[in-house]
Amino acid sequence: MDFALSREHLALQAKARRFADEVLMPYEMECEDNDGLSAASLAAINQQVLSWEFNAINQAREDGGQGMSIFEQMLVDEQLGRITGAIWDTVFRPAYPLRFASQAQKHEYLIPTCLGTRRDAYAITEADAGSDPRQCVTRADRTGNGFRISGEKWFVTVGDVADYILVHAHVDGDADRAAVFFVDKNLPGVVVKRTPKYTHHFAYKHPEFIFDQVEVGEDKLLGRIGDGFELTKDWFVEARLGIAARCVGGATRVLEEANAFAAQRTQFGKSIRDFQAIEFMLADMAVEIMAAKSMLYRLSWDISQESDRKRNHGRAAALKLYCSEMVGRVCDRGVQILGGRGYMREQAVERLWRDTRVDRIWEGTSEIQRIIVGGQIKKRGTGTFTEW
């Protein structure tokens, strides 16, 4: 087998690295110092995303996107993961399920979102429902002209700047009739309850929203009633692959920073990288990244070719589990190698240590990923994970 990247893939990888380092990295300390980016900075980055042609890499060209495969998206995401403060999220892409929108919905929502004039946010989690979406109590009751949505959603990432929200709700309160709805944020009844503070300083916020009898038409239903879980699962697969890729990118930057520091830091008359304790930490970091990257590239390639939704869901869970836990170990060692400097927020290693902790939680905790993998083994045997 030839696992070498093609010339085109190498070029895309190099372009994404330049974009991350030249365009996004200069904004890191603004984001850290101000717990976010100014409107002017966000607008400037938005324009660069368009000019570098990194907008909507997950959507078809005919809808205004770049039409990249899952594997190509992974190559971009890996490089974006080097950047702290989740500034990678300024490289906007509409949620994967939007490709199933009607033509009218595409013109109203998808195409403008691909072109950066609109922004979506996906709302699933609730106070008492997260890992199990069937526990959602947000409901969409039928009316004469459409639906009336009532409920509360937490952790709506990008909800501070999005102008419409994709809301996962149960029609008439029936979990078997889950559906996803387009909800414009300026509609009566859409209220920001609060915007919590978090460990990280991210480019965007994660508000909590109340939907107080929000009226939407039949035309705001994405797909069909009952499609909600499959659409949300598709979103999870894409989101988990993106997390895994960014974890590998973030871990790689931590290793680079820790290695450079260990080479120049002198104690007891020699470079600290010459002490076996430090050398072994660097070696362990490199091996873990190598293993994760091998898994990331292979599975991203396979999922690009695979149409089996359940198998993709299981493998994406395994990948997200491994990469998110790997980056936590790598970041912890990186902080240790830098010592007191590793605890200073001006250091990328410290920021990535904080930023990546959430990767073991959002889009499904590590425990949920293990449940998904275990469920696949029960239903399909071990081959999904071992015979490839």
Rank of each mutant, 00 (worst) to 15 (best):
M1E: 06
S6M: 03
E8R: 13
H9V: 02
L10F: 04
A11M: 05
Q13T: 09
D21Y: 10
D21M: 09
E22W: 07
Y27A: 12
Y27Q: 11
N34V: 06
L37Q: 09
S38E: 09
S41A: 13
L42Q: 11
S51T: 12
R61G: 05
E62T: 01
G64M: 00
Q66L: 02
I83R: 07
T84C: 14
T84A: 15
A86M: 11
W88G: 12
F92W: 15
Y96T: 06
P97A: 00
R99H: 05
A101E: 00
Q103D: 14
I111G: 00
T113M: 03
T113S: 15
G116S: 08
T117L: 03
R118P: 01
A123W: 10
A123K: 12
A129M: 01
Q135E: 08
C136R: 07
R139Q: 07
D141W: 01
N145C: 06
R148C: 15
R148G: 04
I149V: 10
W154R: 12
F155Q: 12
F155G: 05
T157W: 06
V158W: 07
V158I: 13
G159K: 03
G173W: 00
D176I: 03
R177H: 10
V180S: 09
N186T: 11
V190H: 02
V191S: 01
V192E: 11
V192D: 05
K193R: 13
R194M: 08
T195K: 13
P196E: 11
P196G: 12
T199S: 12
P207V: 03
E208N: 14
D212C: 00
E215I: 06
E218D: 11
E218W: 07
D219E: 10
K220Y: 04
R224E: 13
G226V: 01
G228S: 06
T232W: 04
D234E: 12
W235M: 11
V237F: 01
E238S: 13
R240K: 12
A244Y: 04
A245K: 06
R246V: 08
G249K: 12
T252S: 13
N259G: 10
A260M: 13
A263V: 13
Q264Y: 07
T266G: 03
F268N: 14
S271N: 10
R273G: 02
D274Q: 15
M281E: 11
M281S: 09
D284M: 10
A286T: 14
V287M: 14
V287G: 04
V287N: 09
I289F: 09
I289D: 12
A291T: 14
A292T: 09
K293W: 08
M295R: 11
Y297A: 04
Y297L: 14
R298W: 10
Q305V: 11
S307P: 01
D308L: 04
R309G: 00
N312L: 06
Y322H: 13
M326S: 07
M326K: 07
G328M: 14
R329F: 07
D332V: 02
W353F: 15
R354M: 12
W362N: 13
E363P: 02
R370I: 08
I371H: 09
I372Q: 04
G374Y: 01
G375I: 08
Q376K: 10
Q376W: 10
T386H: 05
E387C: 09
W388N: 07
